[in-house]
Each structure stands twice: as structure tokens, then as C-alpha cells.
């Protein structure tokens, strides 16, 4: 019982922080908008994009939602480093609650805020003339949460081994960007050269984006049940890995 209470408390803090940093909410919407409106329109008018009503812009839409979730989740996970620098992690660690609950609370909190950001983008569907069903809308929200849990897990796992935010650019260039570009958020993954195809299928974000594409547009490159199974397993593995890292590295984190 007290563990659940602890998870809830940490979840709540994450959400209060998110809602209070108004600038963060605004910026989290601006970048996706640029992609959708500027890149989507510009690139969309340069290429012939058949198959999907609404063309390239509609195709890009679930990809950009996936991108929002990816960025937001990973950075929330890494933000534990800041908690550590401000001594707040210590305050949580000395409480009579398990390390796994702290990790789980943090992950749930971060994925909730990522989902909120994704949902804000989801509302743009109406402007972009994408016909979104209620079930599709709810399905997209659930997919975002599952996807986000795994990505927060990566962030948390990294933060267990990083001393400061100095390695931030490294993470950005070697983890976040490759995951984004390989995810099929920007291009169809059906007719790629083999080397790229392998890399794309190794990226867990691919399955999340593909699932989102099914929820919003009704088409997917990979069967839906495979998408869901992959992101569920990915979420479970990463949460367990980061909980394990936090428990093992407990002494090093304080």
C-alpha cells in the first residue's frame, strides 16, 4: 500500500512540475508544428505521395506524434540527473520506499506528461483534415503511454550512470536522433535498402510510430499485434533494467 502511495506521489510531482513549467508546454508544441506545417507542406508538395488521403502531411502526422513522445520521454528520464544535483533524489531515496517504486513512479509520471504533449498534437488532426475516430484517438493515447514507458526507461537507465548533464549532447546525437530518424516517422519503411531496413526494424520507436499510424490513419506496415507486443516488451524490459540499475547503483547515486 505504501509503495503504491509512493508511486502516486512521485507521479504527481512529475505532473505538477510539467504543468507549472508553462514554457515547456509551449515549446513542446512548437517543434512538432514546424515539422507538420512547414516540413510536411514543403516536402509534401515536392513528392507524389499516393495511398493515403491527405498525402505526405497525413503520413507524417503520427510520426511527429511519435517524435514528441520520444523527445519528451527520454529527456524526462535523463532529468533525474538534475534531481540528483539538487539533492532531491537523496530525499526520495532515504524514504522508506523501494528503489523500484521510485523508478516506476518517475516512469509513469514522465509517460503521462509525454502522453499529454502527444495528445495536444493529436488534436491538430482536425486542422490537418485527418479523420480521427474516438476509438483511434483513445488507442493513440494508450500507445503513447506504452511507448513512452520504454523510452523513459532508457533515459532513467542512462541517468543512473551519468554524473551530470554534460553528456547531454552525446545522448542527443547518439541515442535520440538515430532513434528518431530510423523510426519511419518521416518515410515509409516498406521498400528500403536492406541495411537500412535492418536498422529500422531494430529501433523500438518504429513499432510505436507504426502503431500510431494504424490508430490515426488505419494503415500500418507491420501487423498491429506485433507492434503492440514489441512496445509492451520494450517497456517492460527498460523499466526493469532501470529499476535494477537504480537498486544496484544506489550507493553511487547519492
Amino acid at each position: 500500500m505504501s509503495e503504491i502511495e509512493g508511486i502516486y506521489t512521485i507521479w504527481r510531482r512529475e505532473n505538477i512540475r510539467f504543468l507549472r513549467y508553462k514554457s515547456r508546454i509551449v515549446t513542446s508544441v512548437v517543434t512538432p508544428l514546424l515539422w507538420l506545417v512547414v516540413f510536411g507542406t514543403g516536402f509534401g508538395s515536392a513528392v507524389k505521395f499516393g495511398g493515403i488521403p491527405g498525402g505526405y502531411q497525413a503520413f507524417l502526422f503520427p510520426g511527429i506524434i511519435g517524435m514528441t513522445v520520444l523527445f519528451s520521454s527520454l529527456f524526462s528520464g535523463i532529468s533525474v540527473i538534475q534531481d540528483r544535483q539538487y539533492g532531491f533524489l537523496k530525499e526520495m531515496f532515504v524514504a522508506p520506499i523501494s528503489r523500484s517504486s521510485i523508478v516506476f513512479g518517475k516512469a509513469l509520471g514522465a509517460s503521462t506528461t509525454a502522453m499529454i504533449q502527444g495528445t495536444i498534437i493529436l488534436f491538430l488532426a482536425f486542422i490537418l483534415n485527418i479523420h480521427l475516430t474516438v476509438i483511434g484517438f483513445i488507442a493513440a493515447m494508450i500507445i503513447m503511454i506504452i511507448m513512452s514507458l520504454g523510452l523513459v526507461g532508457i533515459g532513467l537507465f542512462i541517468s543512473a550512470f551519468m554524473e551530470s548533464m554534460e553528456g547531454f549532447n552525446l545522448i542527443m546525437n547518439f541515442v535520440v536522433m538515430p532513434m528518431f530518424f530510423l523510426s519511419g516517422a518521416l518515410f515509409p519503411i516498406t521498400s528500403l535498402p536492406e541495411w537500412l531496413e535492418v536498422a529500422v526494424y531494430l529501433d523500438p520507436v518504429t513499432y510505436g510510430v507504426d502503431a500510431l499510424r494504424y490508430a490515426t490513419l488505419g494503415t500500418s506496415a507491420i501487423p498491429m499485434h506485433i507492434n503492440i507486443v514489441v512496445i509492451l516488451i520494450f517497456a517492460a524490459v527498460m523499466i526493469f533494467a532501470s529499476a535494477y540499475a537504480f537498486t544496484e547503483r544506489e550507493q553511487g547515486l547519492m
Binding site: 505504501s2 502516486y8 506521489t9 512540475r17 507549472r20 539538487y86 532531491f88 522508506p96
Partner: peptide, 27 residues
């Protein structure tokens, strides 16, 4: 109860929220 040498407060939360959080974490 412990008060660390370095500050361990979250700038963006209120005093009451800190107390609520702590009370919840300590059951």
C-alpha cells in the same frame, strides 16, 4: 528524519506540496 547539508528542495513546488509529498512517502 534527516536534513541534508545541501538543499534538497524542488524550486517549482510549494512548501505545502513538499510536506504533502514527504508525508505520503513516509506513510
Amino acid at each position: 528524519g534527516i536534513v541534508f547539508q545541501a538543499r534538497a528542495l524542488d524550486d517549482i513546488l510549494t512548501g505545502r506540496e513538499h510536506l504533502e509529498m514527504h508525508a505520503a512517502l513516509y506513510g
